[in-house]
């Protein structure tokens, strides 16, 4: 039987040396259920980052960010792929299955409920306004995550990769796949060079 309480991040050992803490399937399910029910209008990556990395210490920052990149390259919704990634990292196949089911379970019932009351809801402007507010705060979480990612990189070359990717996709609207196909090999080559230099 899995214990139901969440495991606090360990503080007795430096972060980098901590293997993944033992996380219960129930804790994975509970978190993904909440994320699923709150993921309005996209952009929930910041929330997931906070919950998984900052608050619970389930994954390390670089681990999360590199996984996120792969999740965005692969087909499928980012949040769904991210749930698969987090679940798989923590508890293998059962973890991934639980995260997937919990993430989609809530929205499944909610969207059908929304459809049934749509006519009444759509006439209420404050509902739309409220959802815009949630989206704005979610974007704030993504801003926080971008700043954290930039702080984490610490090298001019990786900061350049961050800026170039952001401008190419967010400002110039180059296709994401094309940008990733260029940025990933370049970034990996830069990382390899940094390692070779500094040992």
């Amino acid at each position: 039987m899995q214990s139901l309480e969440e495991h606090p991040p360990r503080t007795d050992v430096p972060r980098a040396e901590v293997p993944h803490p033992e996380v219960s399937l129930a804790a994975i399910a509970a978190l993904h259920l909440r994320i699923g029910c709150l993921s309005f209008g996209g952009g929930m990556t910041g929330l997931i980052y906070h919950e998984v990395v900052t608050k619970r210490g389930w994954l390390r920052e670089a681990e999360f960010l590199s996984g996120l990149t792969i999740c965005q390259i692969l087909p499928g919704g980012n949040v769904v792929n991210l749930a698969i990634y987090v679940g798989q990292r923590l508890r293998g196949l059962p973890g991934a299955a639980v995260a997937f089911a919990a993430l989609l379970g809530g929205p499944f019932f909610i969207i059908i409920g929304f459809m049934l009351v749509y006519e009444r809801l759509a006439g209420l402007p404050f509902v739309a306004a409220g959802l815009n507010g949630v989206t704005a705060a979610a974007m704030g979480l993504m801003l926080m995550m971008t700043v954290r990612g930039a702080q984490l990189s610490r090298h001019a070359s990786s900061l350049a990769v961050i800026a170039a990717t952001m401008i190419a996709v967010g400002v110039l609207h180059f296709p994401l796949i094309a940008v990733v196909c260029v940025a990933v090999p370049v970034s990996i080559a830069l990382a390899a060079r940094r390692r070779a230099r500094h040992g």
Binding site: A62, L68, T135, A138, G149, M166, V169, V184, S187
Partner: peptide
């Protein structure tokens, strides 16, 4: 480790780009 270190900044950049494009589509 090298691949992970190389992928992380691209992920960060994509999140930043996501903020920019969300602002456009969410009529913010």
């Amino acid at each position: 480790a090298v691949v992970q270190e190389g992928l992380a900044p691209v992920g960060t950049g994509l999140v930043g780009a996501g903020v920019l494009s969300l602002f456009r589509i969410a009529d913010a």
